[in-house]
Design a protein around this nucleic acid. Sequence first.
DNA 1: TAGATTGTTAATCGATTAACAATC
DNA 2: TAGATTGTTAATCGATTAACAATC
Lengths: 217, 217
Amino acid sequence: MGQKVISKAVIKRLPRYYRYLGELLDAGVERISSGELSQQMKVTASQIRQDLNNFGGFGQQGYGYNVYYLRTEIAKILGLDRPHKMIIIGAGNLGQALANYAKFEKNSFHVVGLFDNNKALKRKMVRDIPIMMIDELPGFLQKNDVEIAALTLPKENAIDMAQILVENGIHAIWNFAHTDLNLVVPKTVAVQNVHLSESLMRLSYNLKTLEEEGKIK
Amino acid sequence: MGQKVISKAVIKRLPRYYRYLGELLDAGVERISSGELSQQMKVTASQIRQDLNNFGGFGQQGYGYNVYYLRTEIAKILGLDRPHKMIIIGAGNLGQALANYAKFEKNSFHVVGLFDNNKALKRKMVRDIPIMMIDELPGFLQKNDVEIAALTLPKENAIDMAQILVENGIHAIWNFAHTDLNLVVPKTVAVQNVHLSESLMRLSYNLKTLEEEGKIK
DNA sequence: TAGATTGTTAATCGATTAACAATC
DNA sequence: TAGATTGTTAATCGATTAACAATC
């Protein structure tokens, strides 16, 4: 309680540290200094030390950081140390892609259901995950302790669906619809908006900039 | 030439302005002030005016901004005013999802081919887009003027594939593999990394924080 | 003209980097 | 112990916000 608020910039970097530490672990590296890690990740050693110190001292003077220990601690910070049940609303290509994707983080995210309103999909399975109809959703949420819902829907339906999800006890929404759900949902629900189109537009901007600088063609 | 470098923070916000302006346009709104827009987008009016002024004066004192004009100008800045040919490497669920997705921006991104090494997919079509084999890729790039490649591959293959793409004249990579391609590819190629797992981890962090603050359950 | 709202400069805030004392 | 490297404070840098003169 009364915990220090960690800046968004720091939180944004944590998953990247987590990924690099995983790769180091796979490569059999036991310890690493902020200096070495900074070279690999192309950030400053100072930033790494500052970031980590937001959460307490994970390193040791004269030694550096133990890779396994540091990774475990970051996992805890990110809440990856326990399973989260997740459902996916929208069983199209993106929904199905996420169903596979979320398994990546082995013990953290369990996709327990896909929902769609296309009756042709009813009772089908994606891997071992059943596709259910939207009208089964409230009942399903009542029976199962689901924390996270991924939304891969047209934006017209996303806001109403978010409402339904919140009413039925969902605590986190991973939103792929073209709208900013966090402006619509109560602050007691975590929201991450993934706007793929924005990413593509930034790529387009960068491409255009390279052209204008004469670095292309 | 010798153009002012625009900060990443500004570029990151442009697509969001573009989206809101599109919605205003659909709603038949003709003009808007930075103050009104700031309320809708939950940012400061000051930031909107500062951001836009990086590119020149799009507004008019006492009037505000013409929605259609401003949107058109932002489109130009982002390079959305001309078509970009795009291919997708990896014809799994994510690749196919992107094939539909990229069409969203009507005249900006044309997906002209999907590539995979799964022979079962050979010669299939996704919508009107042919799936081709990876070994056909260099020939295809030689014949077609493709600027952008989306990469939906396991990370093991992504780096080699990026190399091949760059050698064959690709200028922009939209990377969905779990690795930082921008650290690997020459600076004359634009890269946007989309790390979905990082987004999910941030969601998990926010969820955990809400729990700890006692706002859940 | 008076009112509204931009464009732009100046002030503030926050994040990053540098430096170094603490300590393993 | 000497050397290495963290943890942490101080300095710098950049981004955001506030303020207001310019101007439609």
